[in-house]
Design a protein around this nucleic acid. Structure first.
Length: 271
DNA sequence: CGTTTTTGACCCGCGC
DNA sequence: GCGCGGGTCAAAAACG
């Protein structure tokens, strides 16, 4: 969503049809609220993107740009040394470390399913240098997919998560599991309109973005850090479209209003 | 009842 | 050889 004006959920074009219909009062109010929220979101995103061009570039950067060596065994640094020495090394699984923020309520188990892939937890271990347990996940398509993932909270900053991915997926994401929640509707069961926007699964809710005043759990900087990707903006649009499409009351009232309007304008043709 | 998660035991590599 | 620590296994428990 660039400025919200091209947003497919913007129903301004439908309003003339709905306005004036006695059965559409509630619907109109509903639309008005959605549009107002949409405007706030668009404004927030606009401010973010306008003020932080560096974040735009970061959002488009390939995954390798944030690749670091987890390397408890020192494999990445060893590989670099060996290559520098002209020694042929066997290709090693790509190791990618991603940091993200997490809410205290987020459990490590949840972290395994929010990045678009399905994960199966196969172990947990408390490591020496960190009081928080490290969780081990395998791709659900294992053994055909060799990717593994380790997730651990930062030892000093509990709200910071460190996820380490080893290897690369040899299959597509699982769209139906991209969001935690009802698979048939795409709705989050307990977190309506929540969207996972990064590989570690940090979830941002619409209310977090729209109510970034007092009492908000996320400040603007956090949003700037995490809501800059085009993928997120597309997901946001999808969520809003789905939230209207799956609202039976909304669809019913909309259908009635449109039908009434048609009958009102073309009574002769239809009779 | 099938699937997923938990958790203690085990394995393996590394340093001393 | 031994101890330590990280990673994995697998049986039990929990869950839907």
């Amino acid at each position: 969503m660039d400025d919200g004006s091209s947003c497919p959920t913007d129903s301004a074009g439908l309003l003339p049809l709905i306005a004036g219909s006695p059965t559409a009062e509630g619907l109109e109010e509903k639309l008005r609220r959605v549009r107002e929220e949409n405007r706030r979101l668009a404004s927030t995103l606009g401010a973010i993107l306008a003020g932080r061009p560096d974040l735009r570039a970061l959002a488009r950067a390939p995954a390798s740009a944030v690749t670091t060596a987890w390397a408890p065994s020192g494999s990445a640094s060893n590989a670099a040394r060996e290559e520098a020495a002209g020694v042929t090394v066997e290709p090693r699984p790509k190791v990618r470390t991603v940091c993200a923020r997490a809410e205290p309520a987020d459990t490590d188990a949840n972290l395994g399913v929010k990045d678009g892939y399905q994960w199966r937890k196969y172990g947990q271990k408390v490591t020496r240098d960190n009081p928080h347990p490290r969780s081990y996940f395998r791709c659900a398509f294992a053994p055909s997919c060799p990717v593994k993932k380790k997730v651990q909270r930062d030892a000093e900053d509990r709200s910071k998560l460190v996820a380490t991915y080893e290897g690369e997926h040899n299959h597509a994401k699982s769209p139906e599991r991209e969001f935690v929640g009802n698979e048939s509707t795409g709705y989050a069961r307990s977190q309506p309109c929540s969207v996972s926007i990064n590989p570690s699964g940090r979830t941002i809710r619409l209310e977090d973005m729209t109510n970034h005043g007092s009492g908000s759990r996320l400040d603007l900087e956090t949003i700037q850090r995490e809501v800059v990707t085009p993928e997120f903006q597309n997901l946001l649009l999808d969520k809003m479209v789905n939230s209207l499409k799956n609202d039976a009351d909304f669809m019913h009232a909309l259908t009635n209003a449109v039908a009434e309007r048609i009958l009102e304008n073309f009574p002769a043709r239809l009779s």
